[in-house]
Design a protein around this nucleic acid. Sequence first.
DNA 1: CTGAAAGCGCTTACAG
DNA 2: CTGAAAGCGCTTACAG
Lengths: 367, 367
Amino acid sequence: MNEKDFEGGNRKMTRKDIAKLAGVSVSVVSRALNNSGYVESGKRQKILSIAKEYGYVPHPVAMTLQQARSRQILFFCKDMQNPFNVDLYYGMINAAQERGYLVLYNAAINFDRIRDIYVDGIILQNDSLAAIYAGQYGKNYFLPVVTASFGNRESMAVSIPAVDFDMYKACMSAIAYLRKCGHKYIAYAGPYPRTDSNARSIAWQNEMRPVLGDRMYDYFYGIHYSELGQSKELKEFRSDYMSPFTVKETFYAKGKIAARLFMKRQTSFKATAIICFNDEMAFGMMAELQRCGMKIPDDVSLMSFDCTHQRESHYPTLTDIGVDPRYQGARLANLLIDKIEQKKISYTEKLPIHLFEGDSVKDLSQT
Amino acid sequence: MNEKDFEGGNRKMTRKDIAKLAGVSVSVVSRALNNSGYVESGKRQKILSIAKEYGYVPHPVAMTLQQARSRQILFFCKDMQNPFNVDLYYGMINAAQERGYLVLYNAAINFDRIRDIYVDGIILQNDSLAAIYAGQYGKNYFLPVVTASFGNRESMAVSIPAVDFDMYKACMSAIAYLRKCGHKYIAYAGPYPRTDSNARSIAWQNEMRPVLGDRMYDYFYGIHYSELGQSKELKEFRSDYMSPFTVKETFYAKGKIAARLFMKRQTSFKATAIICFNDEMAFGMMAELQRCGMKIPDDVSLMSFDCTHQRESHYPTLTDIGVDPRYQGARLANLLIDKIEQKKISYTEKLPIHLFEGDSVKDLSQT
DNA sequence: CTGAAAGCGCTTACAG
DNA sequence: CTGAAAGCGCTTACAG
């Protein structure tokens, strides 16, 4: 029996093979390899050196079955086109790695098949997923779950611990910042209808109603089929966002539609700034406004939330209110792992909000 | 014994539980559930209805251990910031789903720990990963592996089946297209030094040497520390791209540096067009050129490869030579699954090359 | 300090 | 058509 039998053969080496080679039982091999329990020092050396020589690798599936834990967690998120989620993911990876966990990503899986993939816990991407999970699926699973939250914590999901970025507060800060820069008529563009309870749009409505009065909704771009009705642009999105499970459109595309609507309405009123739902939507909006001949920020200022790495790769760079998404990702991973390992956790961790200045907002206060 | 014992308890239901409930043995339960072998019809009904009532879900880890196959494949790729890879991934997901496989993504794992995650096969993201895998790790693993390839198939990796996008041909097409549009002095910007054997830069050198002669390398932007030496801009990248395992910088950032160099050199010569290594690099370059006051395509035209979905969310939209990355992803998944299932496969599948016109190239031939 | 045994949840060849 | 048994690769409590 030599290396070839395993490496070149079609069978992987097991602890049984090592045991035979070392003249001991599998129990001893396991103890030596796991560094648990007593093993006579000479035998330990021998076992370790054999394992090394043959390039032995433990079978992760067998260990998982036996220990009922895989040291793998799942990032449940459908939309990796959104750079925010990519950043979130990179944040998780490193934090998890430090604690010995692997973060898997899978965009295809649904809640009802989530047990096809064996993980120790799940990180959900937003409040609506959390609400659905808490309401339907989670009841039968009893798997540790945490969620990223954006100021919309829904009552159903309060049982799910969250790392929260308070978008209500963030949107208020954005408005305050724009005002400081001399902007008074501030528009808002998002992917949901005005009736949606999204924290960003509620903050905007509360704050702008006194200023805009009856004309408030001229300044509101809710790029959603229920809002735009038969609008030609929206036709293609008819069935979108009915469920957080399908991403048929992108925020980019919605940003473009918002830009076109903005250009149309510009004839009758004058917003000097637009707050966008997120970076991705802002990028689409910016590109389309520029195509229409608008200069940013000279003709109109743009702000958004998220603070993705892509902020810097557009011209002009976006001014954002945000948290570093990588930090949020890291906190999420740590929160989940704490829960898995049954440490004490707090149910809602609030992230600090920062302003990241770019070149997309014009200071009118000097003029 | 009722539902509560499992769903509300801390133990998941197993086939043994179903067997007890149905008054049969586990063997019968397995046969009924897997629809294999004989089961008396009445018992089958009973078993299925019990499984349904209690919401029984098979334990994927136990099945994997027993069958030595997980129906999961891994997309090995470090860089999800690059939208090309995101598109590739989405292409894989759907193709794999149709054949009953799940595509996992993990950005943290390295070759030497790849067996920590139990998959039936691996899709590598490019030729250099394939070469390294074939040279070092693959020897001991005997796991089905395929790779995306970009015209650089390295000799070490010929044993790994590939879905190839011929970048040499693609770059020739880009040059031909630009010439048709009246461009003569065409620059090239990429992340590797001039000595690199990357198909794009070789094609460009072969084609432009006769035109640019001694001054060729004034038109070549190899954003790599070995090329730029002590250049201040490159300091931060000193250790980058030494290995395909670490992504310390992004193509965006390199595109910006290329843009700054381009602006410097513009005083002494006049390129009317630039071919960029990929979309991500082109975006960075475009943003920085615009910041420097250049109009695209009026002052300089831009082309690149990849054809990512983000093409459309920048202004102007990029003109690309490419394949639909989602199609390449789908082909990769199918190739790998064919290999896993021991179907006949061809070792190199060549993808057709298309031109995707955007607004980033100016037609000088009319002037 | 050691090894036989039971077990994690499943599958399947085999004897009845 | 059925069920006891062996096995996938590992762990660990227990008797020696």
